[in-house]
Nucleic acid binder design. Sequence first.
DNA 1: ACCTGAACACCGTTCAAGT
DNA 2: ACCTGAACACCGTTCAAGT
Lengths: 200, 200
Amino acid sequence: MARRNQHSKEALRELALDAVQRIAERDGPHIVSARKVAHEIGYAPGMLYHLFENIDDLILQANARTVMMLTDTLRQAIQRKKPINAVLAMASQYLALAQQNSRRWQLLFEHAMRNDVPVPSWYQHQTDTLFELVEQQLALLAPEKSSKDVTLAARSIWSAVHGVCLLAVTGKLDVGGPVQAPKIVESLVRHYLLGWTLEK
Amino acid sequence: MARRNQHSKEALRELALDAVQRIAERDGPHIVSARKVAHEIGYAPGMLYHLFENIDDLILQANARTVMMLTDTLRQAIQRKKPINAVLAMASQYLALAQQNSRRWQLLFEHAMRNDVPVPSWYQHQTDTLFELVEQQLALLAPEKSSKDVTLAARSIWSAVHGVCLLAVTGKLDVGGPVQAPKIVESLVRHYLLGWTLEK
DNA sequence: ACCTGAACACCGTTCAAGT
DNA sequence: ACCTGAACACCGTTCAAGT
């Protein structure tokens, strides 16, 4: 038993990455395992190790798809908007996406934690793109600021928004209250930008 | 084999919780397991299940200690300070603690993710205390604001600070740069509060 | 060349049985 | 009453061997 070759190596990779997301969404992110993924696509567990370095690599590549989806969505959200509204739209779109596909985002957030090894550079580069999108808008908003200030502000805003999305998706935000995550995101961006633009 | 009774049930609980933190700090948070903890304190794995519901309960109780340490530290940090400086001090203390004991905080952040079951109320209550500390300062800072506004602002700030601490501890913040987490935290709190107090 | 399946070293959890 | 140790159902990962 061996040698079926029904799928090309590339097709097999896609199959496996699809399976990761399907299992995460159907059964929960903590259910995803190499054995489950292999079973889901009808192969032996060992096969996966010809396509991926290890289980972390597999999940990381699945998460890279999620980040790509986010980046595409945010690019759309910016269109034709003035800087402040563009940043507000990016932030609220991030939250909306995370809430709509919460298990997929839990997989991403969860995996972001267990990093003994630093994330590979190709993944880092993808997340950098998000920061750059924010930076672009901030540069438009406050042309008089130094690029150093813009970078710092972009990281501040995006880290903050990220924090809210994470708490929202993992259910840590509604401390005896309804879903007010969108309000928190808006409050954050609006007040920060107001303070930032007025400074000095 | 059985029946040693060298330790009271309570002493045994403390021993186990100490072991969790020791293993997390010594070998890394992902190394912590029921079997490792039992071995560390010289008992059989099954014994732990007389003291704790399951491995999540064990880790959660260890994390509760970390939160308690944070709360105590923040209470100290507030002393004799004006509201804005108090909030700044709380935020930077949070970051400092998380960076000093990064593996312990990784254990906390990591575990916050895998919540199929919502966190128990005794734990929720502990984290609520943190929000209340921030709320108190904001109420002093802007007495004219409604308590609803204060609550929203407190959650915004603390979620944001939490986001930065999390990214900092997991090494996701230094995108081609040095350790500037403290600057980000300060920028966040200062600009948010400036915008928030000037509003309306 | 491509994939299997068995093996190894781990998990969390339960529970009859020993003292 | 307190704890063990073996068992069960899982993991991730490797790799000789089958086609």
